[in-house]
Design a protein around this nucleic acid. Structure first.
Lengths: 235, 235
DNA sequence: GAGTGGTCTAGACCACGGG
DNA sequence: CCGTGGTCTAGACCACTCG
């Protein structure tokens, strides 16, 4: 039997080998189904994986073409701090440094879609691995979306975990950058004199409502994000 | 008609709303097919998207469960340098600074899977946007995998683009970090005194053979990678 | 208009793996 | 063992969109 995975593997090989170079139109589903001795939906299914991997583009009537790749994609997994620290065999602790209600600065307000004078919950905390600073979390929480946060102290549980438990499936946008730490940040993270920080900025949405905006910074030495390639198709 | 997308949207809503909390077992395909008035393969297709998005886990006999999420995933698109610069309306230029055959340092050698004394092609080049430094590219190319590179000068075309044109569908691994620039790097990128660099390290494979290892560094201010959320399902 | 992909059905067999 | 998901078929209708 030729399964859709077999077919997909064959098609993939024809693309990666250069037999079907970028820009090339490839045979239509009916022809491929005949070639592989299967029905058209099976070919279609094989194709779907290649579309998702960004290898081919399909349009009705115009057929299927091998994509000319102009960007690489990488899938980055951003672990929950506690899990990452414990996975490394270190002891995790969260230290809440500040917690207040305040009107957020303009960029945050815009990101959270708040009214001008509306207040939000600001939490500053430090994630420690074996009592050494690992991540500084600077977060604003939209109380219109998550009113329950108003009564939460975040002494033991970081807002990160608290929100994850409460709103597990929110949508998020991320940005990664390298930054020069501020005065306080350098102290809190115990940074070496010229050491930069690796910054993850995350805005989280529940449906159309912004939940929270966080700035997560790590000491630059000894922190990196690694990625898997989306070209890896499921076995 | 209830299409698989409608069904997927309904299932997604039940998960994000908390109606089916993390860990919960959800009805099996036969029941859902009955509920939605469609056949089982259609439910199966709807489910597939949720599996790919990482929202549910399925096992035969054990059924389908809502996943307890312990990591966030982000999909980062890493644009080709030239395309990114031109998209911003700037003029692109590549400047080849060094090109030599040499035995790579141990970490590179390991990443490329080379024999101890085997030489590789080392290229150092600068990508300019309107004559301002944008990215420094420090690359080793495995000549066993890409012998044609031996005769390429890389005066006009960056190795990045040259490789992309020649080997469009390689698999890649990435790492992102914040770094302190070296002496030469600071000069070449025209960095401010305390400015860090944002570093992308990429290793590329063609089948089982390593193609190249690149270190791409950007001035820390004014460079960030942004991501889309894989939770966004295709329309 | 007509070619190509997108999707659904009804039914079937298979494969995995929990109980 | 046997429930559950995984996949395939044969056929059909539909929806885009290119020419």
């Amino acid at each position: 039997m030729r399964s859709y995975k077999d077919i997909r593997a064959i098609l993939l090989e024809r693309i990666t080998s250069g037999a079907w170079p970028p820009g090339e139109r490839i045979p239509d589903e009916v022809d491929l189904a005949r070639e592989f001795g299967c029905t058209r939906p099976t070919v279609s299914r094989a194709m779907r994986g290649l579309v998702e991997a960004g290898l081919v583009e399909r349009r009705r009537k115009a057929g299927t073409r091998v994509v000319r790749r102009d960007a690489r994609e990488a899938v980055v997994a951003i672990p929950v701090v506690r899990a990452e620290i414990e996975r490394r065999g270190s002891r995790y602790r969260f230290l809440c440094l500040r917690r207040r209600l305040a009107a957020p600065p303009a960029p945050i307000r815009a990101a959270l879609g708040l009214d001008p004078r509306r207040r939000a919950l600001h939490v500053l905390g430090l994630h420690l691995a074996d009592e050494r600073p690992w991540q500084l979390e600077d977060r604003w929480i939209n109380l219109q979306t998550v009113p329950a946060a108003r009564h939460e102290r975040f002494d033991d549980v970081s807002p990160n975990e608290w929100l994850l438990a409460r709103i597990p499936y929110s949508r998020a946008e991320h940005a990664f950058s390298a930054g020069t730490p501020g005065e306080e940040e350098r102290e809190l993270l115990a940074l070496a004199p010229d050491e930069p920080v690796f910054v993850i900025e995350r805005t989280t949405w529940l449906g159309a409502d912004a939940v929270t905006r966080a700035r997560l910074s790590h000491p630059g030495h000894a922190f990196r994000l690694t990625s898997r390639d989306p070209l890896a198709l499921p076995a």
